[in-house]
């Protein structure tokens, strides 16, 4: 086994404690597995010389917070690529947005798509209470869903069909966004081409 001076041992434990702290929120077994593997990596990377410094090894791994961030992102991506949960896909896109431009674009797709679905759904819920104010309004070059900005010269065209049509649009926006996000997350892992 690699000989460790007390100082080096303390440095390893301090690094692993920081990593453990940064991994809070993940399942305990996952954290323990990660810590065990990183500990092994550090021990394997240390030169046999007990006087050799440990800083380059820890520096190569990166700050514990940064390493934990990578783990969280990869775990979320693994889950999200097989998930139909809008919440999981949205939170994955949010985390991904922190580490790259493409992630930011994916997050915008998620917000716009699910935002449209929620907006359609809200207007469906409002329609029974505000039948003369909520609808699909047409006239004078405008086409507006929901409540029109100004009433002059516009008229509602869907009538009783408003609720089923808008429900369908909400469903379409949610399903379309979910499939688009799953596809974007899966294609992230392919080689650049």
């Amino acid at each position: 086994m690699t000989n460790l001076t007390p100082t080096r041992n303390e440095q390893i434990e301090a690094y692993l404690a920081g990593l453990n702290e940064a991994l809070q929120g993940m399942r305990r077994e996952q954290r323990e597995e990660i810590l065990r593997e990183i500990r092994t990596h550090i021990l394997d990377s240390l030169p046999d010389n007990p006087q050799a410094v440990i800083e380059p090894v820890l520096r190569a791994l990166g700050a514990p917070e940064r390493l934990a961030e990578h783990y969280r992102t990869e775990f979320l991506l693994a889950q999200a690529s097989h998930s139909f949960s809008p919440w999981l896909l949205l939170s994955t896109a949010w985390r991904w947005a922190h580490i790259g431009i493409r992630g930011f674009v994916v997050f915008l797709v998620a917000v716009f798509g699910y935002g449209a679905a929620v907006t359609f759904l809200i207007s469906v819920l409002l329609k029974p209470f505000l039948p003369n104010q909520v609808g699909l309004w047409v006239g004078r070059g405008t086409l507006e869903f929901g409540t029109p900005g100004h009433r002059a010269g516009v008229h509602e065209v869907l009538g009783n069909s408003y609720i089923p049509v808008t429900m369908l649009l909400a469903f379409g926006a949610a399903v379309g966004t979910t499939h688009a996000l799953r596809w974007l997350i899966r294609t992230r892992r392919r080689p650049a081409h």
Binding site: T2, E74, A78, S81
Partner: peptide, 30 residues
């Protein structure tokens, strides 16, 4: 970057592309 590879290995395992096992080694640690 070493901090990039280990999380990817974990994901590849979670996706069923890799399998892993702890093995005792001569180094003194598994």
């Amino acid at each position: 970057a070493e901090g990039t590879v280990y999380p990817i290995l974990s994901r590849l395992k979670a996706e069923g592309l890799l399998q892993s096992e702890w093995v005792e080694a001569e180094a003194g640690h598994p």
